[in-house]
């Protein structure tokens, strides 16, 4: 039996801003990890990634990252993705400052 598929999200950086972005189920790019489409099926994940990679005019470096369901949407699994979703720890810059604003 094959290993159980870990749910994924599609993430990338915005071409203009460089900001971390997430592919949503309705084909938008959101700045918020919780709005990402949580993909539970491996084949579907591949299709979504191809779809993302085709948008090279606006996004850079799309890839699949592990995620898990949370109360308000998908949450990062690995600490790298948690930092990407939040911003640096030495200043309240990046996404955390946007949330304050």
């Amino acid at each position: 039996m094959s290993r159980r598929f870990t749910p994924k999200i599609v993430t990338a950086n915005d071409l203009l801003e460089g900001d971390v972005i997430y592919l949503t189920a309705d084909d938008r790019w959101s700045r918020d990890h919780a709005e990402a489409e949580l993909i539970e099926d491996e084949a579907h994940a591949e299709i979504r990634l191809i779809h993302a990679a085709r948008q090279s005019g606006s996004v850079v470096g799309a890839y699949l990252a592990d995620a898990r369901p949370g109360p308000s949407g998908p949450e990062p699994v690995h600490f790298r993705e948690a930092f990407r979703a939040k911003g640096p720890s030495n200043y309240t810059h990046g996404k955390q400052s946007e949330r304050h604003a």
Binding site: N13, E17, G18, D19, V20, V60, G61, R80, F83, R84, G87, P88, H93, G94, K95
Partner: peptide
């Protein structure tokens, strides 16, 4: 990159 511009975790 030849002009020193990287894309990092949160930004260029």
């Amino acid at each position: 990159l030849m002009n020193g511009l990287y894309l990092q975790l949160h930004a260029y």
